[in-house]
Structures are given as structure tokens and as C-alpha cells.
Design a binder for these strands. Sequence first.
DNA 1: GATGAATGAGCATTCATTCAT
DNA 2: AATGAATGAATGCTCATTCAT
Lengths: 193, 193, 193, 193
Amino acid sequence: MVQAAYALIVEKGFEGLRTREVAERVGMNSATLHYYFPTKEALIQGVVHHLMQELKTSRTTVDESAGALERLRAEFADIRVRLKEAPDQLVVLTELAVRAWRDPAIAGILSYLDQGWHNHLVSILRAGVVEKTFRSDLDLDATADSMMSQLRGIGYQSKLEHGKLETLIDQIGEQIERWVLAPAAGKSPRKRP
Amino acid sequence: MVQAAYALIVEKGFEGLRTREVAERVGMNSATLHYYFPTKEALIQGVVHHLMQELKTSRTTVDESAGALERLRAEFADIRVRLKEAPDQLVVLTELAVRAWRDPAIAGILSYLDQGWHNHLVSILRAGVVEKTFRSDLDLDATADSMMSQLRGIGYQSKLEHGKLETLIDQIGEQIERWVLAPAAGKSPRKRP
Amino acid sequence: MVQAAYALIVEKGFEGLRTREVAERVGMNSATLHYYFPTKEALIQGVVHHLMQELKTSRTTVDESAGALERLRAEFADIRVRLKEAPDQLVVLTELAVRAWRDPAIAGILSYLDQGWHNHLVSILRAGVVEKTFRSDLDLDATADSMMSQLRGIGYQSKLEHGKLETLIDQIGEQIERWVLAPAAGKSPRKRP
Amino acid sequence: MVQAAYALIVEKGFEGLRTREVAERVGMNSATLHYYFPTKEALIQGVVHHLMQELKTSRTTVDESAGALERLRAEFADIRVRLKEAPDQLVVLTELAVRAWRDPAIAGILSYLDQGWHNHLVSILRAGVVEKTFRSDLDLDATADSMMSQLRGIGYQSKLEHGKLETLIDQIGEQIERWVLAPAAGKSPRKRP
DNA sequence: GATGAATGAGCATTCATTCAT
DNA sequence: AATGAATGAATGCTCATTCAT
């Protein structure tokens, strides 16, 4: 039900979301749909919450004991996996982001999500600074924000052909690493094992 | 007329665009509007072309003789100026980008625009490499793409408060410069092997 | 159950009567309501019968041995009391009267009620004529009908402020008495003791 | 258009008024109806104003120079004529009166109408007192109100068979005259010349 | 060129009623 | 007896588009 709506949004966008069609896909009367979601808005909220759940469960697992760099790379890996296996998430998220411009309810939810992401990134960066893997003069908040913006930029293009996206992520990942890493003495830190 | 539609899209998004309201704002009958733009799609095309024109005329002027770095910085300056003086352009552009996912006509136009932008960036980067300001091993296409993605990521947030956006651009600008610049002789920490 | 419907009709009229809301107020499922009243019409019938019961039990008590004038005045007193203590009855009755125009079932019930009222009034009037308190040339049926019409007129305004209604009843009561009473020799018949 | 709605209300009451059906009767698309009356409420307002117009134009004409009694009788004659020739007016008016209980907009219009009627009656009564046709101790306001209530009571029964209504009006008319007229010296005031 | 009027196809939502449990 | 879930048939209203003038 929520998933039918979800799929429909992926296909036709919020603009093309029709309660009738959602009901039809689930194989129920449109009145029945309204029995569960009294209003279209409520249905959308359902979709939003569904998406939130999916976004919260990260796609990649890292040891808590892992180093900051590894955890940072995991972030990129996460996006990479999502882009490949569940690009729909990014699609809906983007539609949501645009809709949030005019819908305070969605804006609220999204900003809550962003806050969590921001904090998560900051904690990684801070850990990196502490363990001296990352530059000591790193502006944690600003760097987290710029990372988010860059990753978002990628997400916004989730309909691109996959190959191009891979290259994009790699390049931006490297760029960020180069930005973040402490200048190592003698050997290059940015080589991947 | 096109401008009224443009303004309406900024205010309410594509979803909230009504031919009647556009006509009303111009002070004409909605039938008259349909005389000029036989279909809503045509009107949107008009808006798209209008936007294209505005996007093409860059907001910052640089000497043709300027160095590559200067020209690169001008790109960022351009976004910064737009974000301040004409954020509407970015708003509509973003809406358009999302709509392009399902509308091949718009997708075509946008990809044409992107092509132009890509080529422009590549030419800057190539110049930088030639004049040895930029790294000689730079992947021109990939770097141009990543720049575009990053700048787009910023544009997508054009409704953010202006202060935060400034910081964002600065940070990303610096990041890209660090990525692109040739290692100065002797003490560059960001050296590639 | 019937009372919940009754109350709802008072609040929102027949137009605003929803089976779901009735069930809700009784604290039961709307399906259960339909178990007892298979149709909305049936529920309304229930309300009608409930109202009939309440209307039949007069609000004022008079000795059977009382004089015709006294019994006539009791009729007015009855309305006056109802208007004060149970205006809802008149409200529902009025709604019902209007509905009866198109609903023969209700029309039947109401006309039965009217018949009873008519006969009751006629019996009072006849008694008055017999005991010579009332004019001998009184047209019993016509007078009863006109009384009913006048009292109904009052009932139809049961949402008026109470003070005005009191005055109205008094005035009309006096008027009817003046009409009905036999011309007394020498003194004015319309003075109340 | 308004007339179709008017007719529909007469037939099925406000409860049975459907914009679609109104449009259908006029032979137009229901969207066209909404072009003229953007909302159902607006359509009803149209009906109300139409009715007001019809109610204002009295059905009987009396010389301005006529005596108070004659003018009073004209009032009754007016109702009698309406009841015969345009009972619909009374039907709709009654529906309106009931609806006014919950709809302030209609309540306002109706109370405005009542005010006019009240003033009109008072002016007749006052004239009668001045010319000494009517009792000098007449409470003008109260009498006007009671007359209105009584006439309304008749209107509320406008679906009755015509014969009964005639009798009703006559009886109540006589009653009111008896109430209002100054006691003539020597002969009964209720005899009609 | 311009417009008032008209319209078809839809849309979210409502509501009395039904049905399996 | 009771109920959660389901449903068909509306219902008021919207909107891009068309058409006669």
C-alpha cells in the first residue's frame, strides 16, 4: 500500500500520484485506501516514514572499531550501493527535497534527517582528527555540510547511467579524502589498499 | 507571459502551475494564453528557453586572456552571484531537472545545456593544464563532471539561508582548487605520487 | 442509540445526520448500528417513534374535571414548558415536518399525530361550548386547525431567544381566548385573573 | 439556472440539491455551472436572492390611500394568492428558515427579510391606531410579531391541500381582525360589513 | 488577436451499506 | 452480538483545452 504509492512516486513523481491508482495497484477500492489513509497527505506521510526507515538502515557495515578513514569511505560506499541497488530511494528523496521547499511538514522531517546525517559525519571527522588521520585544522561542521551537499548532488542525478555515477562518486570521494587527510610524511595516504 | 509562468513556478513549483493563473497575472484571458501557447507543455518550453537564455549569459566577466585558475574561480563566483541575485534561476533549474526525469523534451534541452557547460569547464581545465597551472594528469572529463555535480548540489539547496550557502561554495571551491592545482615545487602536502 | 441520533439531528439537522457519527457517540461500531437498524431510514423511524413518545406525554397536568378554558390554557402552558425545557422536541418535530413533505412514511406518522392533537383540541372546545364558556357558534374543526397552525408557527421558531417566544405565546394565547370565549355580559373576557 | 436549482429544491429539498442535476436540467455541463457559481453555496445564495426578489414584489396591490384595515386584509390576501399561485415560494422559504438555524449567512438574509416585514406590519397597525380603526392600546411590535408567526405557521403547511389552507387563512385572518379592531360602539366588531 | 463560455476527463473524499470473522 | 475491513456510487470541484464570436 505504502509501497505502491512509493513505486508510483518513483514512476511518475509526486505530481503523478493518484490515490485511485495506488488503490488499483494494491487491488483494492479507492475508498478502502481512504479507510487507512484518510487523506492523500497522510498517505504521503506514510511514504515518507517508510523512506526514512530505509534510509536509516545503512547499506554498508563497518566495525565500530574501524578507523575514521575507513568509516568515511563507508559513507561513500553506502551511497554507491544505494545508487546501484536502491536508486529509488534517492529518487524519492530528491522529489521530497524539492517538495519540502513548499511543504513545511516535509521540510521538518527532512531537516531532522539532515541533522542526523550531519552529526554522524561530524563524529567521523572528529574521530579522524583525534586519531590524527585527518587534518587538525579541519572545520568539522563546514566539512560535513560540504560533504552532504556533494553527496546530495550525486543523489540528485540518480537517474543517470550507472557507469557515470560510479566515476563521479570515486572522483568526489578522492577529492574529499585529499581535503580531509593530514599531510603524511613521506608516503601518500590516499592510496587505497 | 513566460515570465509570469516563470515566477509562478518559482512560487509554487511545477505542480502549482496553472495556465489560468499565468494568464491572470499577465492580465489576459486564459484562452488568449492558449492562442500563443497552444498547450501547457508549450508554455513550459517557453519558460525553459527563457531560463536557458538567462543561464547562458554569465554573471561574471573575465578577460579572455585571464589565467585558467582565474577563469575557474570565475565559475564559482558566477554561482555565488546567481545564488544571491537570481536564486530563482536555480530554483527553476532544479525543478526542471527533476521534471526531466520523466519528460524527454526537457531532458534533451537540459542535456544540451549540460554539454555546453561540460565543454566550457573542460576548456578551462585544459588551458590550466597547458599553462601548467593545473596538474598534468588531470582527467578533464571526469573533473568537469564532478565539478558540475558539486555545483549542482549547491544549486539544489538554493532555498537555504544565504550565509550557509556562501560557506558551502567557499569550501567546495577550495576543495576543487586543491584537487586541480599542480603541486608547487618543494612543499605541497597534497601531492600525488 | 436512538437518543444519539436524536441529539445529532438537533445539532446538525437531518442533513448532518451520519450513521457513523451516531455509532461513534454510542461507542459502538457503525456496523453494529446497522445490525439494529439495517438502514438509515430505520434509524430515523426509531427517532420518530421516540419523539412521538415524548410528545404524547404532556408536560402539564390538569384535572380531568377542570373547566374547558383551563384545559385550553393548559395547552398553551404545555408548549411554553416544552419551549423552555425541551426545545429539542420542537426542533426535531419541525425538521420532521419538512421532511414529511417528501417522505410519505414520516408524513403518515405525523398526520396520525396531528389527528390525535386535533381530536384532543376539538374535545376541549366542545366541552367549552357545552359548558357555555365558549361561543356556541364556534366551528370546532376549523378552530382546532387554526390553533394547531398557530402553535406550530411558534414551534417552528423554537430557536428564537426565549423571551420573545414567551411574549409570542402569551399574545397568541390571548388572541385565541378572545376568539373562543363567549361574550360575557358586562366585563371583558380577555382579562386574566 | 437559478430557477433549475430553485425547482430542484422544491422537489427534493436542500438535502437533495445536486450541482450535477441542476446543470443537467439546464442542459449544460456541471463544470459550466461552476463557471457561473463557483461553489454550491454561491448557487444557493443565488436561489435565495431570487426568492427574495419574488417575495418582495407583493402579489396584491392596494391603494396607498387605503385604510389600515384594508391594508391589513391585503396582507392576508397576499399569502392566500401566493399559496395558490406560487406555493413553491413558501416551500423554499420554509426550507430556508430551517437551514438558517445552522447557516448564519442565510439566517442573516432571512432576519433582514423579517425586519422589513415586521416594519411593514407595524406601519399598518400604527396607521390603524392613528385613524382609530384599531385599538389604541395595541402593542404594535408584539402584534406584528404574532401576526408573522401565525402567517409563517400557515406557510409551513404549504403542502396541504388548498381547500384546508383557505379556511385556515380566513379563520386566522378573522381572529387577528377581532384582536386588532377597536370595539365599535354597540355592535360586534367581528362582523364583516 | 482576443475573449466569454463551455466542456470532458478527472480528482480526493464521503457515506451508507455489506461481509467475513 | 459485534466488528474491522471493504466497497459502489456519488459529490463538489478543478483544469487544460476548445469554440463561436
